[in-house]
Design a protein around this nucleic acid. Structure first.
Lengths: 155, 155
DNA sequence: CAAATATAATTGCCTTTTGAAACTATTATT
DNA sequence: AATAATAGTTTCAAAAGGCAATTATATTTG
């Protein structure tokens, strides 16, 4: 029966360690030399086709200038396309290229394989507990990556 | 009944978001202008008095040069002391100063307050689930910050 | 409608963070 | 003693991120 404070401490103490593990595993096989931020950007655009720069920046946790440069690099490497929005030409419309999708998948699956192997060591109950816990926190902290603009209205 | 792969995906997708939240909250009130890495360094040294540079670097996930400079700054601000090890004068012995301990506590508690408030919205069962899940992963991934040198043998 | 204001993204410049390589000092090995 | 190994530091360069100013487009308002 952990108190809110105890739970907070447990989360605060261990999330950074989990994150580091994730980073480490990810860097271990930097597919296509994607940085963590680049990877997460691709993943967000994959889940939110046609996203704007602001949306991506906000959801990844970067400023506009930084994200603009990051996207620049991804476009240069032909992993993303940056088109102008059809009805609002200030905005850009980010989309994954086929190559972007495949590199994203490759990077994702490499890391997933490691974690899946580890989670396979657990019982179903333990996995259920973890999945449940994450879903609870997802809801509690409104963690779902939301588009600031509810209408994807492409073109 | 989540499969290992599904559990992996859930963790991979949400840990970065949780981490970002943690960072954001932390930066919101940068007590004493501590960076995230500096904060985690102080926390590690607090839990591992007399730690060496390599130990800290390894556990925080930084290279030696970076950690050396980071520690430099903390020593300059009188939050850490850097003494030479008694029996092996190549090594350094890091210890928290009283001020370091107090700034660490202050920073920790500020962030903890936010998370505790959120977790207070949950039921006991949900908190138990979260705490259980984290403990399972802690064990599974051997997340506990371990000292590379089991013997703290000071001086 | 024209002027003023707001918004989206980019660019230039700067600071901070990071690491690779070289270097120093100390300890361990042969 | 000579050599190798280990712990930290320093130097240098590169990367990442942000602030402020700029451009381009939309929206508001007088």
């Amino acid at each position: 029966m952990p108190s809110p404070r105890q739970t907070a401490a447990l989360v605060m103490d261990n999330i950074p360690l989990l994150m580091r593990l994730l980073r480490t595993k990810f860097r271990e096989k930097r597919v296509g030399d994607l940085s963590m931020a680049q990877f997460r950007t691709l993943a967000f655009v994959d889940a939110n086709q046609g996203a704007s720069l602001s949306e991506v920046a906000g959801n990844i946790g970067l400023g506009l200038p930084s994200m603009s440069k990051l996207v620049d690099a991804l476009v240069d490497h032909q992993l993303l396309t940056r088109d102008t929005h059809g009805t609002d030409r200030r905005r850009i419309c980010l989309t994954l290229t086929a190559q972007g999708k495949s590199e994203l998948d490759e990077a994702y699956q490499y890391t997933q394989a490691f974690f899946a192997d580890k989670f396979a060591e657990l019982t179903e109950d333990e996995r259920t507990q973890i999945a449940g816990a994450i879903n609870v926190m997802k809801k509690l902290f409104a963690l779902d990556p939301k588009r600031s603009n509810p209408e994807p209205s492409e073109q």
